[in-house]
C-alpha cells in the first residue's frame, strides 16, 4: 500500500489546492442538481468549511466524496422542492445582426420549451445529462462522481436526451 504524503487536509496550502481543484466542479454539480435558488456558491463555501473543521478526520482520498456529500446534504436540507430553473446564456445579438425577427422569436420559444423540458427531467437524468453536455464529461467520469455504474450513466443521459427531444418537439 502506498503511503499518503498527507494524512489529512489540515494544511492551508493543501486546502487551497483542493479548493482550486474541486470548487468549480462542486459548484456546477450543485447548480445542475438543485438550480440557483439554493445558492450553490454558499453550499460550496459551507462544504469546504466543514472540510476544514473536520480536516483531521477526512483522509485526502476521501475529500472529494466528503465535499460532494456535504454540499448535497446541505442543499437537501434547504430544498423547497421548487422546479429547477436553469438559466441560459444571453446571446450576443451583435454577432447576428442579419437574423430575422422570426428567427429570434423562434429561438426564444425554443429556449422556453427547453427550459421547461429540462425542469421536467428527473433529477438524476438532468444531473447526468448536464454534466455530460455542458461540462463535457465522459460517462466514466460521471459514473465515478455519482458513484454509479457507467451503464447507468449512459442510460440516464440517453433517457434525458430522448425525453427532451420528445417534449420539445411535442412528439
Amino acid at each position: 500500500m502506498s503511503k499518503n504524503l498527507y494524512d489529512n487536509v489540515c494544511e492551508e496550502k493543501l486546502f487551497a489546492e483542493l479548493f482550486k481543484k474541486h470548487a468549480q466542479e462542486l459548484h456546477n454539480f450543485i447548480y445542475y442538481k438543485y438550480g440557483e435558488h439554493i445558492s450553490p456558491r454558499d453550499k460550496v463555501q459551507e462544504a469546504f468549511i466543514k472540510l476544514w473543521d473536520n480536516c483531521k478526520k477526512v483522509p485526502l482520498q476521501k475529500t472529494k466524496s466528503f465535499l460532494f456529500t456535504i454540499a448535497n446534504n446541505l442543499s437537501l436540507n434547504q430544498l423547497k422542492h421548487d422546479k429547477v430553473k436553469l438559466k441560459f446564456q444571453q446571446e450576443d445579438h451583435k454577432n447576428y445582426t442579419n437574423q430575422s425577427p422570426e428567427f429570434i422569436l423562434e429561438e426564444k420559444e425554443y429556449l422556453q420549451k427547453y427550459q421547461k423540458a429540462l425542469a421536467n427531467l428527473t433529477e438524476p437524468q438532468r444531473v447526468a445529462f448536464l454534466l455530460n453536455r455542458v461540462e463535457g464529461k465522459k460517462h466514466k467520469e460521471i459514473a465515478a462522481l455519482l458513484g454509479i455504474s457507467r451503464k447507468a450513466v449512459e442510460k440516464r443521459i440517453y433517457g434525458a436526451l430522448e425525453k427532451l427531444r420528445k417534449e420539445i418537439e411535442g412528439i
Binding site: A16, F19, K20, A23, Q24, H27, N28, Y31, Y32, E36, P40, R41, V44, Q45, F48, I49, L86, K87, F88, Q89, E91, Y110, L111, Y114, L118, F129, L130, R133, V134, L161, L164, R165, I168
Partner: peptide, 22 residues
C-alpha cells in the same frame, strides 16, 4: 438539443475569489 444545452450557464464562479473568501 446538445448545442442549446451548452448555453446553460452556471452562475459565474470565481474560484480565486471564493478561495480568498473562505
Amino acid at each position: 438539443i446538445s448545442d442549446t444545452s451548452k448555453k446553460i450557464l452556471p452562475p459565474s464562479y470565481d474560484v480565486t475569489e471564493e478561495l480568498n473568501e473562505i
